[in-house]
Write a protein that binds this DNA or RNA. Structure first.
Lengths: 239, 239
DNA sequence: CGTCTTATTGAGGTCTCTCAAGATTCGTGG
DNA sequence: CCACGAATCTTGAGAGACCTCAATAAGACG
């Protein structure tokens, strides 16, 4: 849990494999980054390593090529909140903040590309398309944050876990049929949903007992009754 | 509590008083709106009226001239979360969303100016300064949302209320010395902080018993011990 | 094959919620 | 200006959801 700030395995940016993985992207930003390929650095981090700490100068924009990151806020007394998880194609560091508001940590082994902020900003001059894409990205971020605010504010533990599982199933790389591979440990899920780790376990145990899911191991959830999961997440009368 | 969509008291936009109130602004956006003055509509709403409902086409950008708005999300079963309160100078509707993600409702009697989104967007063409200001506004919105996520996720009722009071004290128009005039009812505070109305009352009662605040009436909080409030909000060991 | 981390389950405690009864405030109309 | 009704606020009592603490189990790793 202690930050490890070492940055490892600097790889030449002309790594073909990474570029192809990059095609798994969320917004229309990927194409813009391609034009910066020769100014980019490809980095790798191991599970648990810290890419950046809240308050660090945001000199780079990171694009996740493979693996899973978490954006988290650490309080002085150890309390932690994970604002969001990032997957291949996701971006962190856009916007006008000169420092990172959240810490960036590797949930699983990750490969990411770091683009110089200064160079990227220059790319924006006169490029309406890029600016529109950035605007869209920020707007989507706000939307997601507001949705999560509602969930933390209004939903029960059961509803939050169901919602979380459904959201993770939207990540193609985590899903094989009805099998959901969770890259993050229970503690991360707990800190993301504002619950204790034990509550996560107990809700999963309940869902398993109800036949909604199976949990062959801690990192794998098999969804047996997708509809039921949706019903629970939509905070309908619990079936 | 039932939405009232009537838009009242359409006032000619050349209302000098409103323009001057507008100078109480948060970001650098105000100047840009001045250039649209002749395309703007000034509207007034009474307490409890709905300016827009989540899902409405976002045809206008609203700038609050006076009063207090709430941006809220309503669930089907009646649960509600208030994402944020807006005050004079605050803006709602920026970003690229074609529909409002949140409902906009009047907490107190409000006066606001509605700018056509289409015209505003045209203003952005070739205007780097405006685009930068919009970017800054969206970034600030994300920052605020993430801060609130942490609060909902990690803070106790006591800490949330203390944090809320301090945040409201950052609004000059609500503060007279150590007197804080809250425009919103307890229920709104509760829905904003993810607590029940009774919990709000009880925390306030406790703070009053401790001599941290006085509560002469429901809408007025007198801060007797500002430092203590900060200590509580910073989730230090509870004194 | 031991050791460490992570996950699960149980028992009990606590914070916050729900329900309910007064108190206060506010708007309205006589 | 006062009275009345409605809404809001406050406080109490009890319940419930989630948390904490603790012990066991299951994996991960060398």
């Amino acid at each position: 849990m202690k930050p490890n700030t070492s940055r490892l395995h600097i790889v030449p940016p002309d790594d073909i494999a990474v570029s192809s993985i990059l095609d798994v992207h969320q917004d229309g930003l990927t194409a813009h980054f391609a034009r910066l390929q020769h100014d980019a650095m490809t980095l790798s981090f191991r599970r648990g390593e810290t890419i950046a700490t809240a308050g660090d100068t945001a000199a780079y924009i990171y694009v996740l090529a493979a693996g899973c990151l978490r954006l988290s806020h650490h309080a002085a007394d150890g309390r932690r909140h994970i604002a969001k998880f990032l997957f291949a194609g996701d971006t962190v560091g856009l916007g006008d903040a000169s420092v990172f508001a959240l810490s960036i940590e590797a949930v699983s082994p990750v490969t990411l590309t770091a683009y110089s902020r200064a160079i990227f900003d220059r790319l924006g001059d006169g490029n309406d398309r890029l600016r529109a894409d950035i605007l869209a990205h920020l707007s989507a971020t706000i939307l997601a944050a507001h949705r999560q605010l509602f969930e933390l504010s209004c939903l029960t533990a059961r509803e939050r876990v169901a919602t979380f599982l459904l959201r993770m199933m939207e990540q193609p790389q985590l899903v094989y049929g009805n099998r959901l591979h969770l890259p993050m440990p229970r503690q991360d899920i707990a800190d993301h949903l504002g619950l204790s780790i034990e509550s996560i376990c107990r809700v999963l145990a309940t869902l398993r007992a109800e036949g909604v899911i199976e949990v062959p191991n801690a990192r794998l959830v098999v969804v047996r009754n997708f509809a039921a999961l949706r019903t629970i997440a939509d905070n309908s009368p619990h079936s």
